[in-house]
């Protein structure tokens, strides 16, 4: 079991981050959130719908800027970074997994995973080799040339995970990855995420499913855009 590695810069560090959306009245989606995530952690973010989980993920993923506060990725302050640099940060350090998979229809599993390397300046043949290897890692070596509509939901989400992992990011951001899966597929997907974390991948998993959250080592609860609790879970407590 990999433990948090404190010798490297923090994967993610938020300092007093707030995010509000304009409107009448304005929506304070996140208020004064400070948190740091070390390499190797498995962080579960729990909260009711509308509590700010997706906003948190978009800010950590540099897809949107906070209204106040600072965001550090791998120890780098993202304030003032241009679109090109922020995109580069995402292409190298961050892997996204979404509830709806977002696979491109009409393209094979391998082609979809290759898109995870498309913007990082790697040759096409290396993109192919690494994508096939990653599909093998998530247990889909028999699905390389299948199209999304020829695969089950669980398989499609595995393709999406391979796409998020193929560029060896510093951490994975997963927004309700099991939200569209049945309990059997949810279980095997969580097993995959846990084993990937065991191999060293930092996981930030967003969910409103407490059973899913129970698989993480550290749980943060959001309510109305604020951190309500942040605690490390005793190993083995899931099956107590």
């Amino acid at each position: 079991m990999a433990l948090a590695d404190e010798s490297l810069p923090k994967a993610v560090e938020l300092k007093r981050v707030s995010k509000s959306y304009a409107g009448t009245p304005p929506v304070n989606a996140l208020s004064d959130v400070s948190i740091s995530v070390s390499r190797g952690e498995f962080l579960g973010i729990i909260g009711a719908s509308g509590s700010g989980k997706t906003t948190f993920l978009h800010i950590v993923g540099t897809l949107t800027n906070p209204t106040f506060g600072s965001v550090f990725i791998n120890g780098l302050d993202t304030a003032g970074m241009s679109d090109r640099v922020l995109a580069g940060m995402r292409s190298k350090y961050i892997g996204f997994v979404f509830q709806e998979y977002f696979l491109l229809q009409g393209f094979t599993a391998t082609e979809n995973v290759e898109n995870g390397l498309l913007y990082s300046g790697i040759s096409a043949s290396e993109r192919r080799d690494r994508s096939e290897a990653m599909l093998e890692r998530v247990g889909l070596s028999h699905r390389l040339t299948h199209l999304p509509n020829e695969m089950s939901g669980g398989e499609q989400q595995r393709v999406a995970i391979a796409r998020a992992l193929v560029h060896s990011p510093s951490f994975i951001l997963a927004d309700e990855p099991t939200g569209n899966l049945d309990s059997k597929n949810t279980e095997s997907l969580m097993e995959l995420l846990v084993s990937l974390n065991d191999e060293g991948t930092t996981m930030i998993l967003i969910t409103h499913d407490l059973d899913v959250a129970a698989m993480s080592k550290r749980q943060v609860t959001l309510r109305d855009g604020r951190i309500l609790s942040d605690s490390y879970v005793q190993q083995g407590s899931v099956n107590d």
Binding site: D83, R84, A87, R90, S91, F98, F102, L104, Y119, R163
Partner: peptide, 16 residues
Amino acid sequence: RNEIGLRRALGATRFH
């Protein structure tokens, strides 16, 4: 729209 969002998440710039 979703494909555009996905590509941005994968590292595409506005220019791309």
